Simulated assay, not measured.
Amino acid sequence: MNWRWKPHECVLLRFDPQIFLEFVRGKKLAFIGDSLARNHMESLLCFLSKVETPIDHYEDSEDRKRIWYFPGHEFTLMILWTKFLVNGEERVINGSSSGIFDLHPHKVDEKWTNDIPAIDYIIISDVHWFFRTIYLHNDTGVIGCVYCDTPNMTDYGVGFALGVAFRSALNHINRCENCKARVILVRTFSPAHFENGTWDSGGRCNRTRPLREKEINLSSNDWGLRSLQMEEVEKANVEGKKKGKICSIGCDEGNADET
């Protein structure tokens, strides 16, 4: 409870909601992704509500898409909920959920893409839904899977599915001709805080200090997934900077200052 987040080689001042609202006056900011993205939106909403009470502008029937509006600053905050960033549907077997998903990595999810032309700032956070049994499709049919034991089918693993989904999402934003967003941030995979076991197998959060750099396990699955996301981000940066309209994680100081 007494820790303060201090990024490496960066002096980060305490968040000031008044300054933030002035910075985003007249803009729209969207968190895109799963429940962690929603948690971040709600956290920001709580901070900003100390300065101005927002209007609950929109809520869909499943409470997935939410839009809040701060009239005094003409600022819109929203969560665009999506499981995989790309098209993915759960199989229904005998009228019940199966926990098995069919994923189309080459097709982005319209649940969020329909809204992005009007958004100024995009924050993407999405990983945990990929830890399920998934069958990967292209236009001709099933090409492989994740967490499956289907005979004569290649299990490509979580990393492959995650990488192609992020590639599709970032490419779509980069190539969106009527999108005005210049800043796209990607929140990379966050490892579990439990040590000596998982949350349900004896794991505990007993750490009294952050890991030092030399203590990080660079061969861990958590680090590997983060690295895969960073590879896709860097590829998107190269394409985006050619068009002068996208600055994702890793943007240089010049671009950051301009925005």
Rank of each mutant, 00 (worst) to 15 (best):
P54H: 10
I100W: 13
F84G: 03
I93H: 05
F75V: 05
I32R: 03
S43I: 09
D102K: 11
W81P: 00
N39C: 11
G26V: 03
E52Q: 08
A30F: 08
D34N: 15
P105W: 12
H57E: 12
I123R: 09
G95W: 09
D126K: 12
P71L: 04
K107N: 01
I67M: 15
R66M: 15
H40R: 11
R66L: 15
P54Q: 15
I67N: 09
S61P: 04
F101P: 00
I55P: 00
Y121S: 05
E90Y: 05
L45I: 10
D126C: 14
K27S: 05
H73Y: 10
H40M: 11
F23Q: 04
L85A: 01
M78R: 12
F70R: 06
C46A: 12
R91G: 06
V86Q: 04
V51F: 06
F23L: 04
D102E: 12
S98H: 05
I119A: 04
R132G: 00
I122D: 10
N39G: 04
R66I: 15
Y58R: 06
D109H: 06
R66T: 15
G33V: 06
I122Q: 03
C46R: 07
I67F: 13
M41H: 05
D115Y: 12
S43F: 11
T113V: 07
P117W: 15
H104S: 14
G95M: 13
K65L: 14
I93C: 02
G99T: 02
V24L: 08
D56K: 07
D115P: 07
R66S: 14
V86M: 11
H73R: 05
R38S: 14
L29M: 14
G26E: 03
W129R: 05
W81V: 00
N87T: 04
I55L: 08
I55S: 02
D109V: 10
I79D: 08
V51A: 13
D63C: 10
D60Q: 03
T113G: 04
V108W: 00
L103F: 14
I55R: 13
D60V: 01
W68L: 07
S125Q: 14
Y69P: 00
L45K: 06
L77H: 07
L45Q: 03
Y121D: 10
H73M: 01
H73C: 02
E22P: 02
R66A: 15
L36Y: 05
D109P: 05
E22D: 10
